[in-house]
């Protein structure tokens, strides 16, 4: 078993704490889950556990940020998106405060806890807030780069993480080149028949889907979209102009996430293209093992390949 993304995150945050004393970390009684606990132990004077109070959590971070500190806010993705929305919009975003909002347990990754804990609308909510950037890393390497980027930004950023083991994309596709802006789409695999744009945990699935499509004689281009907002529309449009077909894949409701963002952007470019969205249909999910849950709700390499084949 490789390391979970939350562990890589927690350790990296603590590492950053040692070199940057402007970082302060906040959590809402879930630091053992989000792994902000590593930072808490190393830097107790710069860690604030506010208890189960996500609204207060985000606004205290806002106050800290007004005085030049760089707060990193930790909570479950669903509760940040649902219980701190007013604070994120009216205090953090409206005032362009440099706060990093880290949503732990994104998508279905808190699988056994069930629908109350699964975060499938967070991207849609965060995306609609002006000035808030939305990043969904696909592996530990991207998570670190995304966090670095967010900590240097002069505005709020939402970083959506997964609870579980993250694939190591570097093994297969090489590391993201240091010079490549985290907001730019990374082309993981060139292809000519269909474009698969994926984010987060779906990126590795898209890679596997492309392999199986290749064996059927379909050439798929795989795009790794870390930044849902801002969306790198140019790179997306170049690929879709070439293939004429797009499949989006995300661990999120099909409403308002990556699929919606791509459809909106490409439609306005006037490109002729056909499209399918892989994601959770407009329904509530349930408890179960992570892999089986993903599969049941239509998120898998097979589902991506099937949709791509239906278009190409």
């Amino acid at each position: 078993m490789g390391e979970t993304m939350r562990d890589s995150y927690g350790k990296y945050l603590a590492q950053l704490g040692a070199v940057r004393n402007d970082i302060v970390v906040l959590d809402a009684d879930v630091s053992s889950s989000t792994k902000s606990i590593y930072f808490a132990k190393a830097f107790p004077d710069r860690f604030f556990n506010v208890g189960v109070a996500e609204a207060n959590l985000a606004d205290i971070a806002g106050g800290l940020a007004t005085a030049g500190l760089r707060p990193v806010v930790n909570a479950f993705a669903i509760f940040l998106a649902l219980k701190s929305t007013d604070q994120i919009r009216n205090v953090l975003a409206y005032n362009e405060l440099p706060v990093v909002l880290v949503g732990a347990y994104g998508g279905l990754s808190d699988s056994f806890d069930g629908a109350s804990h699964q975060s499938l609308a967070d991207i849609a909510i965060m995306r609609a807030i002006p000035g808030l950037e939305v990043l969904v890393p696909a592996d530990a390497d991207e998570m670190k780069r995304a966090l670095d980027y967010a900590l240097d930004r002069n505005g709020p950023t939402y970083l959506r993480l997964t609870r579980n083991e993250a694939p190591n994309l570097s093994e297969k596709f090489g590391e993201r080149s240091a010079g490549l802006d985290i907001r730019k789409i990374r082309v993981l695999r060139q292809g000519s028949d269909v474009t698969i744009a994926a984010t987060g945990m779906c990126v590795a699935m898209a890679g596997r889907a492309a392999e199986s499509l290749a064996s059927q004689g379909i050439s798929a281009e795989v795009l790794d979209v870390t930044s849902i907002k801002p969306l790198d529309i140019d790179s997306l449009a170049i690929s879709v102009a070439k293939t004429g077909h797009l499949v989006t894949a995300e661990e999120h409701s099909v409403i308002g996430g990556l699929g919606s963002a791509c459809a909106e952007a490409l439609a306005e470019r006037g490109l002729p293209f056909s499209m399918r969205r892989v994601g959770v249909a407009d329904c509530f999910t349930e408890s179960g093992p992570y892999d089986r849950l993903l599969a049941k709700y239509g998120i898998s390499a097979e589902a991506i390949a099937r949709q791509a084949a239906s278009l190409a």
Partner: peptide, 15 residues
């Protein structure tokens, strides 16, 4: 929002 933000500002003074 006010008291929450105030807590943050005052904690920043401490830091």
């Amino acid at each position: 929002h006010g008291i929450s933000v105030g807590v943050g500002m005052a904690l920043a003074a401490r830091i």
